[in-house]
Amino acid sequence: MSASVLYDAPGPITRRRSRVTSIIGTVVILAILAWFIYTIAAPRTLANGATVVGLLDASRFDILSDPQLWQAVGRGLVQTLKMAAVGGALALVIGVLFSFGRTARSAAVRVPTAVVLEFLRGMPVLLMMLFILLVFATGSYWAGVVALAVYNGALIGEILRAGIQSLPRGQREAGLAIGLTPVHTRMIIEFPQAFRQMLPILVAQLVVLLKDTSLAYIVGYPELLRTVTNLGNFYGSRYTFTLFFIAFVIYLTMNLLLSWFARRLARRSGGRAAALARMPGAGMGTGAPGGGA
């Protein structure tokens, strides 16, 4: 909805006023940013009277030239990507299975699947990681991978189901009419279309998965964030901020690239998928149990 519908075309006075407010807005934002940077750059006095240098002090950044630091960060990044890749691939497989179960004709399959899906979607990934770690004693890597795969698989299952349901009925009927079995129809007629239509949302879900690999930190897997905090212990707390900043830049770059990719896909496949990709929930993993998709 464009704002111009709401009021008449602005005259010269209104235009001048809006120019002035625009300038004031810019100044206010710059002032807030300047205050923020100034405050974190200023030295801080601790409770015991000692003073620590500001967060932007040069002495905090001299490790950036240490190649060993970058090697360690690279190793952490590889571990994160490995977990995201394996977890993502498994999540897609599990999602396909769930979407089958959820749309099965027999209620004996459909109802239990629905219950399991609700259960999985209503629970934190972190709790699942802990559960798998303690109950199956798998080690932190598989605990993280399986929890991410199952949780995101449940969400992807619902996404695919929504995709299948959004297809015209004629697609399925045509498949059955030419003598394909229901499973065959699903596999070669409905799925390819549903998958393509939902691709942008699936990619958005993979962004969530990539972000959630950081939760494996808590169960002790040496992914990027764990690596960075370990490095903080190694180099000393002076460098904590610097190291977090490195992690920040890496995560931001990876996810913005993926999101950009999702938007490009949305533009290419157009229509409904594009509208859904702009859905507000996309990106937070808002798998709402009970919320009809």
């Binding site: 934002i29 972000k211 905090t229 977090f244 937070m284």
Partner: peptide, 28 residues
């Protein structure tokens, strides 16, 4: 400003946000 704020916070893990709060907020 709002667009940058949204994009940045949406694309980093919550745990990292919490860590940053632990490091930066004492300065504020």
């Amino acid at each position: 400003f709002a667009a940058v704020y949204t994009e940045v916070l949406r694309n980093i893990p919550l745990l990292l946000v919490l860590f940053f709060c632990g490091v930066v907020l004492p300065y504020l």
